[in-house]
Design a protein around this nucleic acid. Structure first.
Length: 854
DNA sequence: GCAAGGTC
């Protein structure tokens, strides 16, 4: 029997589609990556009985990147990234092993049906899947079609079955347009980001951002925030005047009237109006009106609207809201949360989800009433053909979801109930008055359907045309126009959506990016206030090449890409041309960078003027300055050299000890008082002295054979948790001595009351770990009798075993696993796990010295 | 250490 292999874009869709096509009778099992499932069922295809095998990928299978050596920032001129630097497709998520998975499942199938989302990205993923699967499929005989594309506009029985009935072919042009987009974004984004980052970080010491990134989406996003900032800055308040009349309704109630002219900006004219009215004793009712108005029920909920409300009403950032929504989805509380669609398909069962809510403590009454009286069909919205609007799928309580998730769920559910409710109708009544020659109005609302709420104002007096009310007071109010406030996240989302910047799934990422890069900060009310850095960057782009920050940068490129998708332009030509344009922009930007520098200088200090003297340079023996702002580093202004330091920790001078290789004073990096710490040579860390040392490492990874701070001298044995790490004695941790892994986060506490701990040259006979030589305090020695000195293996010695506490690794260490599992991995000092040969470690002193002089 | 786009 032939096999038809089918692939969807995500696990949830594979399941839904398989369930629909097999009418619920399919077998299911997990795939080898543990994330994607495989569904199998018998059926007919092209008139033949076949076996269907449905599974999915997880979004893109591949991602575009530069070849390895072009990822070395100091070795490649960013200008080369526009054309010379070759790119390659890498697996997007190596952990998922997607190519292997597709090949295992697709091997030997006769046909493939591609059920990827029906947008350009989906079309591109079609070809990623084909690249993996075609080579392992059975060869077609006689040139029959074996590759099919299913096109569906919603995940409903009718639509999926219709798509299956009229399969087409994947669209190569659409896929190519995405290839072009990927390459443009990569080359342009990385070139500008690397140049800016290196240039400004090499000049200023207090930018406080570890990366000065640029991107066709994130930069215009920042642009919107700075544009609003500029409006606020250039705002000049204007004085205006308002005439306010107060009339008496009865003896203890009066009413404020709104002036029909609203306000005037000329003081004398305002005064004139006051003069004309202030002596009037009566206000005549000129007209009354009552109009029925309606506040429409909301459109069904899509992602961006959910993010807007989450930010503005719930105070939840888009990134966080999205994560929360995803959790609600995977737990079955809501439908798929990434959708552009605001329209329910005709066949969508609205009553089912509503019935789920019929006993909810908060809204049971409303829901029951709706179910009894009949629901109102939701308004006609936009159908993007992706997923139905976000809908609550089962009832939940606050206790079961917990704070944040509950608030989002509550909103989604209330929104859903509203979409199938009736519009909110109310009466607007207004009374127009005349005071002298001037007209005033008073407006109020009356509810018609009390269960729906519109803020009600004080009820109006009942009066009719010709009535008069006594004027209590007419006065002039002097007011000032006020500047706009900073952009709210919700407003920013709207702007991005309007200009086509980002997608429903990526909008939160771009906003998060500009926060993380310290271009904007989130203020109260979730308003985004640009930082000095953000402002200077945007102003700099404006000065040099405004197109770099204008929102049109994205849409202009996308227009070109659409030509590829439509088959009206050649992929190579569009790519080449657009890259050429941006390459020119890049060179112009580099040549004009002085223009941005002028702005930078106003807000930021040069490297040489930043930081505090900390440790001495090994070359000139002058003090280098420690720059704490991100990225933290040491700068020697005499040699004009910068040495980057490990981030996310504190740096102190290490007893003025020096590195024997370069004479630089060592510093001590520490992650916190009870955490990890290790000494580090600023020079070695940036220019590793040995072949097997990586950049950015400390003395705990240094293979110097005799330096007292090195791995060779302080290493004890292989890490109990990670593959490649070695446990190293922390020489500064006394009196609460610790050993820590030089790769992962394992920290083991030992010997609370020892005044000296040394790593012995001898090793343990049974596990090869280095022995520790410990001098305990006389008064608090845990040793039997009066003994204060003991040498032994931390893993095997019965005395030490009692004293060593292996933090978050206790159950992993062979010692604690019980018998029979100790073979295979020696724990000797610096020993590598079998099958994973690292750089070979020197065995004896002579070979160690040989390594030393490479 | 970069981009933006999928999705987990």
């Amino acid at each position: 029997m032939k096999t038809v292999f089918m692939v969807a874009e995500k696990p949830s869709l594979a399941q839904s589609i398989a369930r629909i096509l097999s009418r619920g009778s399919m077998s299911s099992r997990k795939g080898l990556n543990g994330t994607c499932s495989v569904y199998e069922y018998p059926g007919t295809f092209a008139g033949q009985p076949v076996r269907f095998k449905m599974t999915s990928v997880c979004g893109h299978v591949m991602t575009l990147d530069f070849l390895g050596k072009y990822n070395k920032w100091d070795k490649v001129d960013p200008a080369e990234l526009f054309s010379q630097a070759p790119t390659e497709k890498k697996e997007a998520n190596p952990k998922l092993n997607m190519v292997k998975f597709l090949q295992v499942e697709g091997r030997g199938s006769d046909c493939i049906v591609l059920w990827l989302d029906c947008d350009k990205e989906g079309e591109n993923i079609c070809f990623e899947v084909l690249d993996a699967v075609l080579p392992v499929m059975n060869q077609a005989h006689g040139g029959e079609q074996t590759v099919f594309r299913a096109r569906f506009s919603s995940i409903t029985d009718t639509d999926i079955c219709a798509a299956m009935a009229r399969l087409g072919e994947p669209d190569h042009n659409e896929a190519l347009s995405v290839d072009a987009r990927q390459e443009l974004d990569l080359r342009i984004g990385c070139a500008f980001t690397r140049f800016q980052t290196k240039y400004f970080q090499g000049k200023y010491g207090n930018l406080d951002s570890s990366l000065i990134s640029f991107g066709p989406c994130q930069t215009p996003t920042l642009g919107f925030c700075v544009e609003r900032h500029d409006k606020i800055q250039s705002f000049k308040p204007e004085t205006y005047w308002v005439l306010q009349a107060k009339v008496d309704v009865d003896k203890d109630r009066s009413l404020l009237l709104d002036w029909d002219r609203v306000r005037v900006f000329d003081r004398e004219i305002a005064q004139m109006f006051l003069n004309m009215t202030k002596l009037e004793k009566e206000a005549q009712v000129e007209a009354t009106s009552r109009k029925e108005k309606a506040k429409q029920r909301p459109l069904a909920l899509n992602t961006v609207e959910m993010l807007r409300v989450a930010s503005s009403a719930l105070g939840m950032g888009p990134q966080h809201a999205m994560q929360t929504a995803e959790r609600l989805y995977t737990q079955g509380y809501i439908s798929y949360p990434r959708t552009e669609t605001t329209h329910y398909p005709e066949s969508f069962d609205l009553k089912g989800p509503l019935r789920q809510q019929a006993n909810h403590p908060y809204w049971a009454d409303t829901v029951k009433q709706l179910l009894a009286a009949g629901i109102n069909r939701p308004r006609k919205g936009h159908d993007a053909g992706d997923h139905p609007p976000i809908t609550p799928m089962k009832a939940a309580t606050e206790a079961e979801l917990g704070g944040e998730a509950w608030r989002l769920y509550e909103y989604i559910t209330r929104h859903f109930i509203a979409t199938v409710s009736h519009d909110c109708k109310y009466l607007q009544s207004s009374v127009s008055f005349r005071v002298g020659p001037e007209r005033f109005t008073c407006t109020g609302f009356t509810e018609i359907m009390p269960w729906q709420s519109v803020p009600l104002e004080e009820s109006l007096p009942t009066c009719q045309k010709g009535d008069t009310l006594a004027v209590a007071e007419v006065k002039l109010l002097e007011k000032q126009t006020s500047p706009p406030d900073y952009l709210t996240e919700a407003e920013l989302i709207t702007l991005m959506e309007k200009h086509g910047i980002g997608t429903d799934a990526s909008i939160p990422v771009h906003i998060n990016n500009i926060c993380q890069r310290n271009y904007v900060v989130v203020e109260s009310g979730r308003r985004l206030k640009p930082t000095n850095l953000g402002i200077v960057l945007v102003h700099g782009y404006y000065k040099i090449d405004a197109e770099l920050v204008l929102p049109t940068i994205r849409s202009a490129v996308e227009k070109q890409l659409n030509l590829i998708a439509q088959g009206r332009a050649d992929f190579r030509q569009v790519l080449g041309h657009t890259l050429d344009v941006f390459k020119r922009k890049f060179h112009y930007f580099v040549d004009s960078i002085a223009g941005m520098d002028e702005l930078m200088e106003v807000s930021f200090s040069p490297l040489a003027a930043t930081g505090k003297p900390l440790s001495r340079c090994g070359k000139c023996h002058r003090f280098m300055k420690y720059i704490q702002a991100k990225p933290s580093r040491l700068h020697c202004s005499h040699c004009d050299e910068t040495y980057t330091l490990p981030q996310n920790g504190t740096i102190k001078l290490y007893k003025e000890l020096r590195c024997p290789l370069d004479d630089f004073e060592l510093v001590l990096w520490s992650s916190g008082s009870r955490g990890k710490s290790y000494p580090l040579c600023p020079y070695c860390s940036n220019h590793p002295p040995f072949r097997d040392m990586k950049k950015g490492t400390g003395c705990n990874e240094c293979t110097h054979p005799s330096c007292q701070h090195s791995l060779s001298m302080l290493g004890i044995g292989q890490c109990v948790e990670c593959e490649s790490g070695v446990l190293v004695l922390d020489p500064t941790s006394g009196p609460k001595w610790r050993v820590a892994c030089n790769r992962c986060n394992v920290v083991a506490h030992c010997f609370e009351n020892a005044h000296r701990v040394r790593v012995s040259a001898e090793t343990c006979a049974s596990c090869e770990a280095a022995l520790l030589d410990v001098d305990f305090n006389k008064a608090k020695s845990p040793l039997p009798g009066d003994g204060t000195q003991h040498t032994g293996c931390v893993f095997c010695d019965p005395v030490f075993q009692e004293l060593v506490e292996l933090k978050h690794a206790a159950s992993c260490h062979p010692m604690h696993r019980g018998p029979g599992r100790r073979q295979g991995r020696g724990r000797g000092r610096g020993r590598r796990p079998a099958g994973k040969p690292g750089p070979r470690r020197p065995k004896d002193k002579m070979s160690a010295l040989a390594a030393y002089f490479v």
